[in-house]
Nucleic acid binder design. Structure first.
Lengths: 159, 159
DNA sequence: CTAGATCGTTGGCGTCACCAACGATTTATC
DNA sequence: GATAAATCGTTGGTGACGCCAACGATCTAG
């Protein structure tokens, strides 16, 4: 059909959905990460801030579930956020295993600031797609994502 | 609209295209990587084998351009492939700066074997999408990818 | 009280993408 | 021919990211 050869890639490699997904995720991710980096923030940190903004003070374990971040990494992320006074971490008096993480006013301000930058970055990242195409892309990605996202603790174990 | 909460993620985080891209790329990539891992092969190695299969013997630098892999990493990849006797690496007599990398018969066999596994893996990875949806997804991803892929060596340098 | 589960923490691993610098070599310029 | 610029392979290092194993502390179930 249409011979595109913007760098000359092997057909199999070029047509591999996984590669295309990966490569595009990198390029798009870079635009977003740059927008975050301007404010000295990482993707993981944004995930946590967004989760706290949406669900209020929750435990680290809860953050892990909602962000799909590993416990080990979550610890480091909360450390970083805490050292910047963007969140507080206190031991839950009702269950002393847990730490309750809560956003500070500084954290909220940072988050609002990040949101603005993010909106612009996303817009720049998706620039070549019309509104309908953006929605379609997100729809398809969501299908794929939800399909592969392991449903844990259900009755859907490996046959 | 439809309230989906398969784990309960923050709206901003959930609706972030870059996150969805990244997450999906990981999940889909895992399916493919597993298929490669069965034969002791990495993604980078597949990229090189596919490129050699499509374009014949080329230099490492050429491989870098066509696969978008960094020079340093390419060196390691070729080392690994060479140690498995999947490729040969000889100094180009016409330009002794370059190494000419070429697939061996063993390499070709491995590649054919990988192709079979790949096709199946891709099919499994894209299982929840109908044919039309798969094509649509690839189309949209390609638009995004090509838009962000820096066109090198052209007259399109940074303004 | 014991066993099991959960949580936070520490430490480590491997992949992936990237960058800086060096020597060797080729090409372009004078 | 000498010099400068560019290219190539190689080495070494960096950082984000995703993941796993193990430990002590704690809560829950029996």
């Amino acid at each position: 059909m249409d011979i595109i050869r913007h760098a000359g890639q092997a057909p199999l490699w070029r047509n591999l959905a996984s590669r295309l997904l990966n490569q595009t995720a990198i390029l798009v991710g870079r635009v977003v990460s740059d927008a975050l980096a301007v404010q000295g923030t990482h993707r993981y940190q944004l995930a946590v801030l967004a989760t706290l903004d949406a669900f209020g003070a929750v435990s680290q374990a809860e953050l892990c579930r909602r962000t799909n971040i590993d416990r080990s990494d979550m610890n480091a992320v909360v450390n970083a956020l805490e050292s910047e006074a963007l969140v507080t971490r206190v031991s839950d008096p009702e269950d002393r295993r847990q730490n309750i993480v809560e956003m500070t006013e500084t954290g909220k301000a940072r988050f609002e600031s990040l949101k603005a930058g993010l909106a612009e970055a996303e817009n720049r990242a998706l620039a070549p797609l019309a509104r309908a195409d953006r929605r379609e892309l997100l729809r398809l990605l969501r299908i794929l994502h939800d399909y592969h996202a392991a449903p844990p603790a259900s009755a859907e174990g490996p046959g």
